[in-house]
Nucleic acid binder design. Structure first.
Lengths: 198, 198
DNA sequence: CCTGCATCTTGACCTTGGTCAAGAACACAA
DNA sequence: TTGTGTTCTTGACCAAGGTCAAGATGCAGG
């Protein structure tokens, strides 16, 4: 059922640049496969995020804990997405994010070291990462826009429309955290607006 | 007093890649200088954002209007920064953002067309734009984090610490909009926490 | 089949910040 | 100096969403 992670990552890259078989090989040799059981951590607060990680199967979330210990989910990463604590990754300093598996997850990690090697040896990867970063930036920008201009209900409706395939994997708590409300308010919201049948 | 815009943009780029004089020339020939008077628009909602714009002097803001007509400021761009409606710029579709001059502003615009030419002719610019985009992404991510985990007062204090040089240019309304509160609440907040002397 | 832990729901009450409208302060233009 | 507009402040009231705690529901493991 599961597709080969290497095939998936090559398809992902192939959407942006064209590689020769040798280049593909060179690239995939720099990737380190990983497996994370449900709830296992890829990264914890205070650690340096050394890898740009491709999700081949499963699902991860990145979140932070505020000073009252409450968890705020920043992003979900479904298969075919990349995840990292970008701030820590580019500065090399310890970050504030946790990255955790939501269910069993297969990954391919590209370390900063290896990314540098890759970019030096095959410069067209610069283009590829520029495009990936542009998209991640646009998504992040849109999240800012939504949190400023939409109500909690609107954010929920948008989330459901945008990521229907994530819904079965997530608890209500996680969705609540992503859209920025408490579980208690989330529950009332579903009831009040009759949004229970996803 | 003012520095030459071309010098400034070359210094900006030079922080990430090294150019020969010919390459510098090729690059700067692709830039279109602009001047915007206070309150003039570089971009309006519904227009396609065709340019990646460098601010050489002055200051701009990008904002959106929500469906109640209220303005939410997404970013400020001071000298030595780039500004664009990234979503519209990368998709080529009409965007939702306004980009407006806060005071008299000198710009250098790199159109998407010219960017493509530049990247084709001098591939090391891929690297440069990857890095610029990574930073913009990290800043946007941080804004999401702050809006999720800080109170209005904390966001204000952080804003003042982070952008002291912007404060003299901005009205309280604009700062309020950026940190995500109304002018009325902003005023009360200053009083209550004795934050008036910037 | 029962236990134990997670998640979800609900009630009662609270806090943060919004709304609307009016007045005060300021700014600059004629 | 006197408008005229804009920004800032304030009062009275409101609404969205948070807090805390208790009970209900669901489900995996033994």
């Amino acid at each position: 059922m599961q597709q080969d992670p290497i095939e998936l990552v090559l398809a992902n890259i192939g959407r942006h640049i064209t590689l020769t078989p040798e280049e593909s090989r060179y690239f995939t040799d720099l990737l380190k496969p990983g497996h994370y059981a449900r709830r296992a951590y890829l990264l914890r607060e205070g650690e340096v995020c050394a890898d740009f990680t491709f999700i081949a199967a499963g699902c991860m979330k990145s979140y932070l804990q505020d000073k009252n210990g409450k968890e705020h989910i920043l992003t979900f990463a479904a298969p075919d997405w990349w995840i990292a604590d970008i701030m820590s990754f580019i500065t090399g300093r310890p970050g504030n994010l946790f990255i955790q598996a939501i269910n069993d997850t297969q990954t391919l990690a590209l370390s900063r070291r290896n990314q540098e090697t890759l970019l030096r040896e095959i410069p067209k990867f610069e283009r590829c990462f520029r495009i990936l970063t542009e998209r991640a930036f646009a998504a992040s920008q849109q999240r800012n826009i939504d949190s400023m201009s939409l109500s909690a209900v609107e954010r929920l409706e948008k989330f459901r429309r945008q990521y229907p395939y994530l819904l079965p994997l997530l608890t209500d708590q996680e969705i609540a955290s992503y859209i920025g409300v408490t579980p208690a308010f989330f529950s009332r919201m579903l009831k009040k607006h009759d949004l229970k049948g996803r």
